[in-house]
Write a protein that binds this DNA or RNA. Structure first.
Length: 1064
RNA sequence: GGGUCUGUAGCUCAGUUGGUUAGAGCAUCGCUCUGAUAAGGCGGGGGUCGGAGGUUCAAGUCCUCCCAGGCCCA
């Protein structure tokens, strides 16, 4: 009837089988297409770089990206899942540069940009097959065949459209920003590259004197970059810092007072002291005269807050082209820029003395020159950490570079969502901030914390990269600076007459636009050449919602119905990455958020709390681990952790194995129990119930487990709809525990009993239903094991038309099966059993020793009825002859009381403490009186029952224990009849062990021989012979001093001995 | 340096609007049970709740400062 289960489960090989089955059934595609197209749940997948192999971080995000879509699919939604690849940018360019031995930008140009780009195109998808294998092996259902790539023509064309939208709204401008620049590579570097290159180096530290005009005074200025001095345009001082005029060797020097003694002696006379404010605006004599005259304020003293007196002189040399603070001040004061360096960081003819000398290389010679002019006051060397080019090891320059920016302070007008209303005008940044408020973040604090704060402080986005392999900035510029932004291939063709099938740099840079009228595209006017930069590849991933659909060139309805997305999930590091760029672009284009729900996962650390490191080998290889313990276990381990709410996870293989032990094995064994007994009973014709047949059992255990399942269903629904995955797994684990350690354990005999009765059918029907429904609940989390259960229980025996558990509807809460009272009853019964076990353990009375009586004291009439209905269960579970349920506990406990601070605290205030002490002193009778409804006046307050927390004190002489809900007393006297029964049970246990040892099946019949029994043991066995025979399936139990059997053991229980043989 | 998150048992983590024995799982030790289970049950040991102040009748929980770690940004 059911496929026999191998109880030695190998989950990895089971998973491989399921993968093949899914492949054969085309199960993933089916799961999508069988749901209605008009009822969609939109998931957007962030594109990874395929330049490396997937690691645990990807597996975690991938699991989240699988569970949520699977859940909503089972809830009846169509959830398309397209994989995507990030193809452009530095990661692949660097790899190709290494492969081709190209160090510098010039090398690449000499090699040919076309050749270089084609090499990138050919190499970027190198690891996609490995990705596909690992992602699929993890059980993730995602569409690889229909994947999007950021280098696709359609994708790139949509990116152009996005850019042009921004351009037309006036968001795009060209401007300068200080960037780290590698003179050897002739390019600016990303932060990531800069961070790789910090090393200690020695630099000059010089103090230069600047004579102030109209006086015989000089100002001392400290700098560590002499090469920037030819570009000096101003000097910054601090308004509220005190400056001192010192006389030294017949000259007068201005210096910050707090720095005076670092430069001058105590005895050098102080001539004057003023606040910086008094010096502002004074002109000084420049060191060099290379810079053109650009501003009134050139070569004057300016105020700046960034000036500090922690080192130097309290006066800072300003070269706006060569430093972030210099640049900011230069902008504010309109100083202009003066950059006399060429692309390779060498001085141009603008600085004749050092033309063709590299900037840093010129330091020495510049110092020498200044010394000869008598302008160096002090010359030292100092050592500091400084960024170097990660490829060439040359020190980097901080240098103003012309870039393309997206302005965040530009105003946009739109009708805000979600409320309908009049159009409003806000800056782009404000639209971003407001749309962030509409996003549900998990964990919640990201919204106003990390992400919200980042938005508040966001600066204009630098969109351009002076690189090669990327989407080109689609702006063509004429000689006179006039610009044309091109938003499609069609436009490009109209403007140039050239039709292209590729939008990469080496193609479109060849295209020159000629027109005098941008509207008519009259080809007789100026000629426009494309600006050379490519786009930041984050612009492309941020354009993904539009570009994956080739919007607006195709799929207009598809896009409009699927924006904003319902759900995305990525790691915490994407706050500044994808989350941000999605938000910027959707606010720029549509003044909306790009997504409604986001799960942010934390980073995964190795078990030792350190970063996972290939070098340290402090973590197991993902593929190897999956093949050893299975993907289901790895998935559940990761989801059952704070990593699904942005916190870090220490990955431990022990943790994964715990999941196997706590969830997978018990579940598998439940299945095994069910199929084994169902098959056995079916073949004996003792089972009238058939799989698929609905049968409502009136048995209380059955009704309880079904009701318990309903609780689980409502709990899972609440958590899944709030995207709190981390709360789901604990609920699942609890249910597994309820199912295996209570329902099945308590129901065991019902399957085992050989009579064919209604109750047995009810038990099978119930367990079947539980296993089938629970497998559906588990399906998003454990896609493999749940599928196997479904195949065995439903598809194979019932030949269901629904071939996969993942095609089923997710089980919904059924109020008809939910019985809150029953759940409370069962909880109370379990508590009584637990207390009974505690008493046995305390008194060291083993469970096989039957006892006479258990007294259960409950706190109310309703509870008494509940408990009475469970008398049989408790008797059996605790091995007692009778259970008495009563409301009177006076003979077992004495009352003590503690104050209920919750009710008394607000009433009493400062009197709380003394009253609490008085309450602790109350005697048994007082408390009983209050409990019986007679309030006690303490003076400060009148106590009623609700003001007390009753504590039950138990005499150590009695086998009694108590909780607020129950008091339980155990009669521990063992008389001879009880002792005989214990011996019988001990014997049964020995025989069962021998059966196992002999490798017998549960249904095999045996005969039992006993040799050398002591008289009491013999008496015990004879008294309970029928019972023993039934328990161990013995056709005969004989006392035979001569016989022998295949397996035997010697038994000795408290001096009662025998040798037991079991014969098959 | 700034922002943010985290800090509770040996380990991994819960801990409601502040309310009085601070919990669970794992690990460990002892006992126990077992014909579905590689398991299960009961108990013991193990805590300056990162530290210091403050608010309050009452703080793991609220406030301030500090310390340590992670991430992001400088």
């Amino acid at each position: 009837m059911f496929r026999p289960i191998d109880s030695d489960a190998s989950f990895p090989s089971l998973e491989e089988r399921i993968l093949a089955l899914w492949e054969k059934d085309n199960a993933f595609r089916e799961s999508v297409s069988r749901r209605p197209a008009e009822k969609s749940f939109v998931f957007n997948d962030g594109p990874p770089f395929a330049t490396g192999l997937p690691h645990y971080g990807h597996l975690l995000a991938g699991t989240i990206k699988d569970i949520v879509p699977r859940y909503w699919t089972m809830k009846g939604f169509r959830v398309e899942r397209r994989f995507g690849w990030d193809c452009h940018g530095l990661p692949i360019e660097n790899i190709i540069q290494d492969q081709l031995g190209l160090n510098t930008v010039r090398d690449i140009q000499n090699h040919g940009v076309g050749n270089f780009n084609e090499a990138c195109r050919a190499g970027v998808l190198k690891y996609t097959q490995e990705w596909r294998r690992t992602v699929s092996r993890m059980g993730r259902w995602v569409d690889f065949d229909n994947e999007y790539k950021t280098m696709d023509l359609s994708f790139m064309e949509s990116v152009w459209w996005v850019f042009k939208q921004c351009f037309d709204k006036g968001l795009i401008y060209q401007g300068y920003r200080i960037q780290p620049y590698s003179p050897a590579l002739a390019t600016s570097l990303s932060n990531f590259e800069v961070n790789q290159g910090y090393r200690m180096r020695q630099d000059p530290s010089i103090t230069v004197s600047f004579p102030l005009e109209g006086s015989d005074e000089v100002l001392l200025v400290w700098t560590t970059t002499p090469w920037t001095l030819p570009s000096n345009l101003a000097i910054a001082i601090k308004e509220d810092l005190e400056y001192t005029l010192v006389s030294h060797q017949e000259k007068k020097y201005w210096i910050a007072e707090s720095r005076r003694l670092s430069y001058f002696g105590e005895n050098d006379p102080v001539l004057d002291k003023v606040m910086g404010k008094a010096l502002l605006g004074r002109r000084y004599k420049p060191l060099f005269e290379y810079a053109p005259y650009m501003s009134e304020r050139q070569y004057t003293l300016l105020a700046a807050d960034f000036v500090s007196d922690s080192d130097g002189t309290g006066a800072v040399h300003i070269a706006p082209s060569f430093g972030e603070e210099d640049f900011q001040l230069g902008m504010k004061e309109s100083l202009g820029l003066f950059d006399p360096l060429d692309a390779e960081g060498k001085f141009t003819h603008l600085v004749p003395e050092w033309t063709s000398v590299g900037a840093k290389d010129a330091d020495k010679s510049i110092i020498h020159h200044l010394k000869s002019q008598n302008r160096i006051f002090k010359h030292e060397t100092f050592e500091h950490s400084y960024p170097h080019c990660w490829r060439t090891d040359v020190p980097l320059l901080y240098r103003a570079q012309k870039n393309w920016f997206l302005a965040l302070d530009k105003e946009l007008t739109a009708v805000p969502e979600p409320v309908e209303g009049p159009a409003v005008t806000k800056t782009l940044k404000q639209w971003m901030i407001d749309s962030n408020q509409q996003i549900r973040w998990v964990p919640e604090h990201i919204r106003d914390g990390r992400f919200g704060k980042w938005l508040d402080g966001a600066r204009d986005w630098n969109l351009s990269r002076n690189r090669f392999w990327g989407t080109c900035i689609p702006v063509w510029i004429a000689e006179d600076g006039d610009m044309i932004c091109v938003g499609s291939r069609e436009e490009l063709e109209a403007l140039s007459g050239i039709h292209v099938e590729d939008l990469h740099k080496h193609i479109v840079d060849e295209i020159v636009l000629k027109t005098s009228d941008k509207k008519t595209f009259n080809a007789k006017g100026k000629s426009y050449k494309r600006t050379p930069e490519v786009l930041d590849c984050w612009f492309e991933s941020g354009s993904m919602p539009y570009a994956q659909n080739h919007y607006p060139f195709e799929n207009r309805e598809v896009f409009e119905a699927s924006f904003p997305a319902d759900f995305i999930a990525e790691g915490l590091d994407q706050t500044r990455g994808w989350f941000y760029t999605l938000t910027v672009l959707s606010a720029a284009l549509f003044q909306k958020p790009a997504m409604k729900n986001v799960i942010v996962n934390g980073i995964i650390l190795a078990e030792d709390g350190q970063k996972m490191s290939k070098r340290l080998r402090n973590y197991p290889d993902p593929n190897e681990l999956i093949n050893r313990v299975g993907a289901d276990a790895v998935r559940l381990f990761m989801i059952d952790s704070a990593a699904v709410k942005g916190e870090e996870l220490k990955f431990s293989e022990v943790g994964v194995k715990n999941i196997v032990r706590a969830v997978l094995l018990p579940l598998w064994n439940s299945l095994s129990l069910f199929t084994t007994y169902a098959n056995a009973d079916a073949s004996k014709g003792q089972l009238t119930w058939k799989p698929g047949q609905d049968l409502v059992s009136q048995n209380e255990l059955d009704r309880w487990i079904l009701s318990d399942l309903q609780s689980l269903l409502s709990r899972v629904k609440v958590e899944m709809e709030a995207y709190r995955l981390y709360n789901v797994v604990p609920a699942l684990v609890e249910f597994v525990d309820d199912l295996t350690n209570w329902y099945i354990r308590r129901s065991r005999r019902r399957f085992w009993k050989s009579e064919n009765d209604q109750d047995k059918n009810g038990a099978y029907a119930t367990l079947y239903r539980i296993l089938v429904d629970f497998s559906k609940v588990l399906a998003p989390f454990l896609p493999f094991l749940s599928e196997e259960i479904y195949q065995i229980l439903v598809r194979e025996p019932v030949s269901a038309t629904t071939v996969s558990v993942h095609h089923c509807d997710y089980p919904v809460f059924d109020p008809a099966l939910f019985d809150e009272t029953l759940n409370a009853k069962m909880a109370l019964a379990r508590q009584a059993v637990n207390l009974g076990r505690t008493l046995r353990a305390e008194r060291n009375i083993k469970n096989r020793q039957p006892l006479k009586q258990l007294i259960v004291v409950v706190r109310g009439e309703e509870q008494r009825k509940w408990m009475v209905s469970f008398e049989d269960l408790i008797r059996d579970e605790l091995n007692v002859k009778s259970v008495e349920v009563t409301l009177d506990e006076s003979s077992f406990v004495k009352y003590k009381a503690k104050a209920n601070f919750k009710t008394l605290g607000s009433r009493l205030g400062k009197n709380m403490k003394p009253v609490a002490d008085k309450i602790a002193q109350l005697g048994h009778d007082d408390i009983q009186a209050i409990l019986e409804g007679r309030p006690l006046d303490l003076g400060e307050v009148t106590l009623t029952a609700e003001d007390l927390q009753v504590v039950r004190e138990v005499s150590p002489d009695l086998a009694v224990t108590a909780t607020p809900e129950l008091t339980v007393a155990l009669d521990t006297v063992v008389d001879e009849a009880l002792r005989l029964e214990m011996l019988a049970r001990e014997t049964i246990s020995r025989i069962q062990n021998l059966r196992k040892e002999a490798g017998l099946a549960v249904t095999d019949t045996v005969s039992v021989l006993l040799k050398g029994s002591t008289p009491l043991l013999r008496q015990a066995l004879e008294a309970h012979l029928t019972y023993i025979s039934a328990e161990v399936l013995a056709s005969s139990v004989r006392f035979d001093e001569s016989g022998e059997g295949a397996v035997f053991c010697d038994m000795d229980v408290e001096g009662e001995q025998a040798r037991i043989y079991v014969v098959a």
